[in-house]
Design a binder for these strands. Structure first.
Lengths: 249, 249
DNA sequence: AGCGCTCAATTGCATATGCAAATAGCACTT
DNA sequence: AAGTGCTATTTGCATATGCAATTGAGCGCT
């Protein structure tokens, strides 16, 4: 349990004190400066460091805990939570996991990879400079041997450390990115489209067969990280969500 | 601004006091007993009624406000919020709104309506008894005159007051239900499917054209309210969502 | 009627204080 | 080694208190 640097918590004087504290700590967490697993200073320490009462510090920490950024336990103290990227989001992000949860055998092949500069279309789509270095991948995921989803992905080298030396033989790029990149923003778009010729061949379906197209782009503090297009044969996939009128259940 | 009944707030003695208060008021709101717009008793009143300190009452109310169930303003007091069903959820629920936000003219036709008992399939799909009374509707929504989405809907009469006397001439059923029913749970499923013959004719597209199928079922405290299948021509629709690793942005 | 002023109701925030509950770590025993 | 119990640390909860900020409502003046 590594220690965190206490003097890293700095207030900005804007708004209520408890909220300054909350934002200060939140920023340290989401920026990665306080890594998951490191322990947050106890209320007494923050109280002295910041010159606020314990209840005020408490209020900030309680709120952060409710937001899931930190985990608090009596006596053992407060630690930075491991980001839900590897939990809640995993359902959507990790295809191997998705397939295994269906009780099917997972496998994948990297069909193509090109490293270099983005084409004009890719640069446009993603807001990249033509001079940025990227990797362009085409991956086919299989469930019980049958084609499950076709993945076309662009990875921005600057956002993923160790990209050049990785051949994705062990881990498909989506899962690899979970380990080797950070993201703060994501955008999803879902639409329906007919399979093109090449796509149909790879997915082993008829040309024009309806498919779900999931497009996802992720950024880390406005720097692009990756963009992906996932093409699912439509008839055997559904995306399901449950919620109540006041939010997810 | 109607008044709320103060003695309706009852604690159950389970867990922290602030949370008992929070749940007590939340239940009054989500059950509809405290209607949107009615004013919640001020902190002092609750404090006396419940024998808790103001800060404790305050804590419960602040949390409810953050959850969006109530709205608090100094001096004017606290009122029950109008359910986000007509706000956040509206984006998805109200097709007229969706079309108008695209800057297109909205129109709709009720193509068919049957009132009676559910067929075995409908009963199965929805967990209804064969003896329940339902309405079965087929509605076509148009944007700028062109078919926009095809809606097939089942409404459980017991969950929607005034269903029998409503002909949906003024308001399409989805929007009408927002006014005349409550829901506490919803489930969405999105998939891709090719248009069938009848569907293609109605939507004015080719048979087999890829479409987005959105299926939604809603319940009110485990009692079915409505189920709907929305069929969107795929090429001109996308569902977009944005979020960060710690939740929606 | 309209305008501006004051007053008081109500929520927002922060502090100080005390006790309760959980438990990590340690000393001690078996 | 394994259990057993004590103690100190840390968070959780509730209270009492005081002041600040906002603003609806009434009042008085023109």
């Amino acid at each position: 349990m590594t220690e965190t640097r206490l003097d890293a918590v700095k207030l900005d004087g804007a708004g209520p004190v408890y909220d300054q504290i909350r934002r200060a700590i939140r920023d340290l967490v989401v920026s990665g400066e306080w890594q998951p697993g490191t322990s947050v200073p106890p209320e007494h320490a923050l109280m002295e460091q910041l010159g606020a009462s314990r209840m005020t510090v408490h209020r900030a920490l309680v709120q952060l805990a409710r937001e899931g950024l930190i985990i608090r336990r009596r006596r053992s103290g407060t630690v930075v939570a491991t980001p839900p990227a590897s939990h809640a989001m995993l359902d959507i992000l990790s295809i191997p996991e998705e397939v295994r949860q269906l009780g099917q055998a997972y496998a994948y092949e990297v069909l193509a990879r090109t490293d270099g500069r983005p084409s004009p279309e890719v640069a446009e789509l993603f807001g990249l400079k033509r001079s940025d270095r990227i990797a362009h991948l085409l991956v086919l995921h299989r469930a019980d041997g049958r084609p499950h989803v076709l993945e076309e992905r662009v990875i921005h080298a600057a956002g993923a450390t160790g990209l050049a030396g990785e051949d994705f033989a062990e881990t498909p790029p989506g899962d690899w990115l979970l380990q080797h990149s950070l993201w703060s923003q994501a955008e999803h778009a879902i639409s329906a489209i007919g399979a093109g010729e090449e796509q149909a061949a790879l997915l082993d379906i008829a040309v024009g067969e309806p498919c779900l197209l999931v497009e996802r782009r992720t950024w880390n503090h406005s720097q692009p990280v990756t963009a992906v297009r996932l093409l699912y044969p439509g008839f055997r996939h559904r995306f399901v969500g449950r919620f109540g009128p006041y939010g997810a259940a």
